[in-house]
């Protein structure tokens, strides 16, 4: 069975005065129907740009998708006209953004914003759209939905606004939702509520979910599969268990070691990756993680390791993957 979404060797670049920023540099991954896939990485690794590329929301200038393919349910999204693309956005694929404060329109009522998408994409009557909006707000756990529909975003708390965003995302029964750091701006107890809600709704409605985050805990709790990104590339992918218990890339290993864990007594100092992420305008032939990597050899400077299968669906892009795996085993 073909996957719902297939991204193949996607390249998105930004042409700036400082040079060409290779924000996404040959990224490939797939999302099956009803599956939750996490994309993890630090600021500037290209995880959000990949998501924006799927919906073709990269602003030109300076950004442009320069190469690759994005197939959604058999359709080549990059070949669609702008008009056809508009029918995909919000209908087949919808998006939930990080900032519930800025992603809702402050001068439109909640009801207007909720029904707008439905009226634009489907033949629904205004009355049915209204009833559906009430139903959606109830589904995302907002009390007194009738009253909320006439309220404005500033009447709602951050958590409530994110619930409205989820209701909007679900309104046209999409097949895929892309959630870009959906809970980063929220408090922990509210974060847990929202994530649990998203998990239950996507499972009950059979919607696939791409969750973009930097929080390794969120990934462990909610993702079926994980893609780890660094400097515009996927450097490791696999099931959550592959990534957390059998990492084969030094960056994945380093990430896991640098997060303090709330469930463990502190044993020692944290073991951070030294140095900074690279400047994406100045990447060379070799592996981008090399300057910060404690497993680096001369081979790493000469060529770029490609994503190779370790076992089953677990793949990693590192020449020294066996040494990395051995280190992880020793440590545990």
């Amino acid at each position: 069975m073909a996957s719902l979404l297939e991204i193949d060797k996607l390249k998105t670049q930004f042409f700036t005065t400082a040079g060409v920023v290779k924000a996404v540099d040959g990224v490939s991954y797939t999302v099956d129907e009803g599956e939750t896939v996490a994309v993890v990485g630090e600021s500037g690794c290209g995880k959000s740009v990949t998501a924006m590329s799927i919906l073709r929301l990269i602003p030109w200038p300076p950004g442009k998708i320069t190469d690759g393919e994005i197939r959604f349910a058999g359709k080549d999204l990059l070949a669609l006209s702008e008009e056809e693309m508009r029918n995909v956005r919000g209908k087949d694929i919808s998006m939930i953004f990080q900032e519930p404060m800025t992603s809702l329109n402050p001068v439109l009522s909640i009801g207007m914003q909720l029904t707008e998408t439905m009226l634009a994409h489907t033949d629904i009557s205004e009355e049915d759209a209204h009833n559906r909006a009430v139903e959606l707000l109830g589904m995302v756990g907002i009390s007194e939905p009738e009253r909320r529909l006439v309220q404005y975003p500033h009447h709602l708390s951050g958590g409530m606004r994110q619930r409205v965003m989820i209701a909007m995302a679900l309104s046209c029964e999409p097949k895929l939702i892309i959630a870009d750091e959906p809970t980063t701006a929220l408090d922990v107890t509210i974060q847990a509520q929202i994530l649990e809600l998203m998990k239950n709704l996507t499972r009950d409605l059979g919607v696939a979910l791409i969750i973009i985050t930097h929080n390794l805990g969120v990934v462990a709790r909610y993702a079926d599969r994980v893609n780890v990104m660094y400097a515009g590339k996927i450097i490791e992918s696999g099931t959550a268990a592959d990534i957390y218990y059998r990492p084969h890339h030094p960056y994945t290993l380093a990430l896991l070691k640098s997060v303090p864990r709330m469930d463990q007594q502190r044993q020692a100092k944290l073991d951070p990756v030294e140095g900074q992420p690279p400047d994406l305008t100045m990447l060379d032939e070799g592996c981008a993680f090399r300057p910060r990597c404690r497993f680096a050899t001369t081979e790493c400077a000469e060529g770029l390791p490609s994503l190779e299968t370790v076992e089953g669906g677990h793949a990693t892009a590192c020449f020294n993957k066996d040494q990395v795996a051995a280190t992880m085993k020793e440590a545990s």
Partner: peptide
């Protein structure tokens, strides 16, 4: 409410929210 970076452990938690 705080998720822990350990998938097996997370599967076993009650998630009383």
């Amino acid at each position: 409410a705080v998720p822990i970076p350990d998938p097996d452990l997370e599967n076993g938690r009650a998630h009383q929210i």
